[in-house]
């Protein structure tokens, strides 16, 4: 924890310009294409640098993932892997039974070195059918989905204006797009962001 705090404090000072630069700014070294020159996959084909599926095993920071397209993946998490599970979080939060999307670099030994993983993330186009204290009920292509509000995390975007924590303008009958985290084995999600109109 101390190291996290030290690193955060160092990064804060760097961002505010309180640290010295070691390298002169050379725009030539910033060519983004160079970093992503890796082969682009063919249209319609699986992307080897991407994985989708359910976590079926975990050995320290190596995940075993069963893809819905039949592919099996081994995914290596590291300290620099970004992990989203309702909010940016730490790699220990990826658990057996969770669904995931991962992007990284496929190593020659077949392991995907993950740069970013999104755990249980869903992006649903829904209609709001009820709003209660226990959650917001959605109709998702005819299926019922219950969305839970997590204080301090759940945000709403009304008519494209900046996101706010105020959910009191949610209206029954409106369409919405919901980014959330699925609760494995249920038809329930925790809402990260709900885009709607008021």
């Amino acid at each position: 924890m101390t190291t996290t705090m030290d690193r955060r404090s160092l990064l804060s000072r760097a961002a505010l310009g309180a640290t010295g630069l070691v390298a002169a700014t050379a725009m030539g070294s910033l060519a983004p294409e160079a970093a992503f020159a890796a082969q682009t996959p063919d249209a319609g084909q699986p992307d080897p640098n991407f994985a989708e599926g359910v976590i079926t095993g975990r050995n320290q920071d190596l995940l075993q993932v069963q893809g819905s397209d039949g592919r099996l993946h081994r995914i290596q998490l590291t300290g620099v892997t970004s992990v989203w599970k309702l909010r940016p979080t730490t790699i220990d939060q990826a658990r057996i039974g969770d669904g995931l999307y991962a992007r990284g670099v496929l190593l020659p030994d077949g392991i995907l070195a993950a740069e970013a993983i999104w755990v249980n993330i869903v992006n649903l186009t829904v209609a709001i059918t009820a709003i209660g204290r226990n959650g917001v009920q959605f109709d998702h292509h005819g299926q019922k989905v219950v969305g839970h509000v997590q204080s301090g995390t759940t945000a709403a975007v009304y008519n494209g204006t900046p996101a706010v924590s105020d959910l009191s303008m949610l209206t029954v009958g409106r369409h919405a797009q919901v980014i959330g985290a699925w609760r494995p084995g249920t038809n329930e999600i925790d809402i990260a962001t709900i885009y709607t109109s008021n």
Binding site: G44, D47, S68, G99, I189
Partner: peptide, 30 residues
């Protein structure tokens, strides 16, 4: 642009099927 899942995967995607073309998978470039 936004994104969607397909291919009878986990969660609410379980009933999404392989899309109107019958070929859609979340892990493919589609």
């Amino acid at each position: 642009a936004s994104w969607f899942c397909c291919g009878n995967a986990w969660g609410p995607c379980g009933s999404a099927g392989h899309g109107a073309c019958g070929t859609c998978n979340s892990g493919s470039m589609q």
